[in-house]
Simulated assay, not measured.
Amino acid sequence: MKRLKSLLIATVLFLGTSQTISAQAKTAHVDVNEIISKMPAMLDAQKQLEKLSATYDAEYKTMAQEYQTKVDKYEKEAGTVGDAVNQTRQAEVQDLVKRITDYRDNAQKELQKKESDLVKPLMDKIKASITKVGKAKGYQYVLNLADLLLADGPDLTADVKKDLGF
């Protein structure tokens, strides 16, 4: 009877240990940041965003220069023109400030939208590749390296890059 109990306890402990080992073996990690930073399509997207940003910056600088020129002119002439002209000019400057602020805000929103439109399909493609590679290699969980404190298991980054074609 004691022998049977001991055998039963040993069997339970063995099965519990093998389940733990099995669960650990089915987890891997991948470095999504490395993949996206080296992905050719992402590099093209970054170039597009930089070009669009440069266009917005140039227009913003032009508007800011126009503002500064008007302010300088109006300050020089403020003493020689009447109050009605100064009030009109003040309203004109305030309108210009509002247009500049609105332009800057809209440009930022458009850049964020463009970035989202360019990056989302790439992230979806990466996610699909990670899923494909992980399942092909028999893993139940594939974690992002950036979210891990310890990454001592299998790294699928190279396999995912290969699957994506770079």
Score class of each variant (00 low, 15 high):
Glu50Thr: 07
Arg3Gly: 01
Lys162Val: 03
Met42Arg: 13
Ala128Gln: 12
Leu52Cys: 00
Ala91Gln: 15
Ala64Asn: 12
Met63Asp: 08
Lys38Asp: 14
Leu8Trp: 06
Glu115Gly: 09
Met1Phe: 01
Glu115Tyr: 03
Lys161Gly: 00
Leu118Val: 01
Val133Asp: 03
Tyr103Asp: 10
Asp105Cys: 04
Met123Glu: 06
Lys137Leu: 07
Lys113Gly: 11
Leu143Trp: 10
Leu156Val: 05
Val119Arg: 06
Ala23Gln: 01
Val71Ser: 02
Ile130Leu: 02
Met123His: 05
Phe14Trp: 00
Gln46Glu: 13
Ala45Thr: 05
Thr11Lys: 08
Asp163Gly: 02
Phe14Cys: 05
Lys125Val: 03
Ile21Cys: 10
Glu77His: 08
Ala64Glu: 14
Lys109Pro: 10
Ala28Asp: 06
Ala64Tyr: 07
Gln48Asn: 07
Leu111Glu: 01
Gln87Met: 08
Tyr139Lys: 05
Gln65Pro: 00
Tyr141Asn: 12
Glu92Thr: 05
Leu13Phe: 08
Thr27Glu: 07
Lys132Asn: 11
Leu156Arg: 05
Glu110His: 04
Lys76Leu: 11
Ala84Trp: 02
Asp83Asn: 01
Thr101His: 13
Leu52Ile: 04
Ala84Phe: 05
Thr17Gly: 14
Glu66Tyr: 09
Leu150Glu: 02
Ser22Leu: 02
Gln90Ala: 04
Gln68Arg: 11
Lys26Ile: 00
Ser37Asp: 15
Ala151Gln: 09
Asn33Tyr: 13
Thr11Ser: 14
Val119Leu: 11
Ala107Arg: 03
Glu110Leu: 04
Lys61Cys: 06
Gly165Lys: 09
Leu96Arg: 13
Gly153His: 09
Gly79His: 04
Val142Lys: 02
Thr27Cys: 06
Asp72Arg: 13
Thr17Ala: 15
Leu4Trp: 08
Lys47Trp: 01
Ile126Asn: 00
Leu149Trp: 05
Ser18His: 04
Asp57Gln: 15
Lys73Gln: 14
Asp31Ile: 07
Val32Ser: 03
Val30Phe: 08
Val85Ala: 08
Val12Glu: 13
Lys162Ala: 07
Glu66Ile: 07
Ala41Ser: 06
Ala136Asp: 15
Glu59Ser: 05
Tyr56Gln: 02
Arg104Glu: 15
Phe14Ala: 11
Asp155Ala: 02
Lys51Gly: 00
Asn144Leu: 09
Gln108Tyr: 12
Ala10Pro: 05
Ala107Lys: 01
Lys162Pro: 00
His29Lys: 12
Ser53Lys: 07
Glu59Phe: 06
Tyr74Met: 09
Asp44Ser: 09
Lys61Asp: 14
Thr131Ala: 13
Glu59Gly: 04
Lys137Trp: 01
Asp57Arg: 15
Lys70Glu: 14
Ala151Trp: 11
Leu8Cys: 07
Val142His: 02
Gln65Trp: 04
Arg3Leu: 11
Asn106Ile: 04
Ala158Pro: 00
Gln65Ser: 15
Ala10Glu: 08
Ala23His: 00
Gln94Cys: 01
Tyr56Ser: 00
Ala151Gly: 04
Ala58Glu: 09
Glu77Met: 14
Ala146Arg: 09
Ala10Lys: 06
Asp163Asn: 09
Val12Cys: 12
Ala28Val: 08
